Computed example of a mutant assay.
Amino acid sequence: MSNTYELKAEAREQVGKGSARAVRRNGKVPAVIYGDKQPPLAITLPYKEIFYKIHGGGFLTTVATIAVDGKKIQVLPKDYQLDPVKDFPMHVDFLRVGKDTQVTVNVPVHFINEEKSPGIKRGGTLNVVRHEVEFHCPANAIPDFITVDLDGADIGDSIHISAVKLPAGIKAVISDRDFTIATIAGTAAAKQEAEGATDAAAPAAAEEK
């Protein structure tokens, strides 16, 4: 799980498009904290801090603390809007979280041991089907990423979610099938080489019997 961080905010009484525009003109970002069976809380946040948090990676999978009106509220960013032209933050939604809060998040997929994949060694390529996987998990135990081990993966192999060791309490949202995360695709030459190796191994195996 990514390291948590704290943001200092100010409560805002007025809401709506006009109020939001005024907040942005003052160099701040309008935001809302909701959830946990409490009324929504409208706040403003420093523009620079939010900009770097959003563009620094892991923003939607990192629990933060927002300090406002003498209180500290644990939250998880759930959504944000960026200006379509200038790419600066326009608005952020936060979800209140507690020790028992369950959330649904997209977690990045990392691949290791590409150098130990026979298929990649022979010229095959890693075809990533899912760069992220959606999981149900505790808000205070969101993994930074899941790891797919390519050791032994050959041309034509598919790596499914069942092959990934997941942290305790983490469950894939798609639960009705063993979905594919990646495959090892090969060139025609590499495929012919693999088929030739298989054909050559078959008679030897028969002789041993």
Score class of each variant (00 low, 15 high):
173 V>M: 10
172 A>C: 14
110 H>V: 11
51 F>H: 09
52 Y>H: 05
24 R>G: 13
200 A>Q: 15
108 P>L: 09
128 V>Q: 08
75 V>P: 00
202 A>D: 13
21 R>S: 14
18 G>V: 08
187 T>H: 01
153 A>N: 02
150 L>F: 02
167 P>F: 01
80 Y>D: 04
27 G>Y: 05
40 P>Q: 06
118 P>V: 11
186 G>C: 05
9 A>F: 03
89 P>N: 03
35 G>A: 07
84 P>Y: 12
160 H>F: 08
6 E>P: 01
27 G>H: 09
7 L>D: 01
121 K>T: 09
169 G>P: 00
4 T>D: 13
40 P>G: 03
195 E>A: 15
200 A>T: 10
44 T>M: 10
107 V>P: 00
72 K>W: 07
95 L>S: 04
180 T>L: 05
15 V>F: 12
55 H>F: 08
65 T>Q: 09
205 A>V: 10
148 V>H: 01
106 N>M: 03
104 T>Y: 12
159 I>D: 06
28 K>W: 00
95 L>W: 07
20 A>T: 13
60 L>S: 11
131 H>E: 13
140 N>Q: 10
131 H>I: 06
46 P>H: 15
186 G>Q: 01
164 V>M: 06
20 A>H: 05
32 V>E: 01
189 A>Q: 07
5 Y>P: 00
64 A>Y: 10
58 G>N: 09
46 P>L: 13
151 D>R: 14
134 E>M: 15
121 K>Q: 13
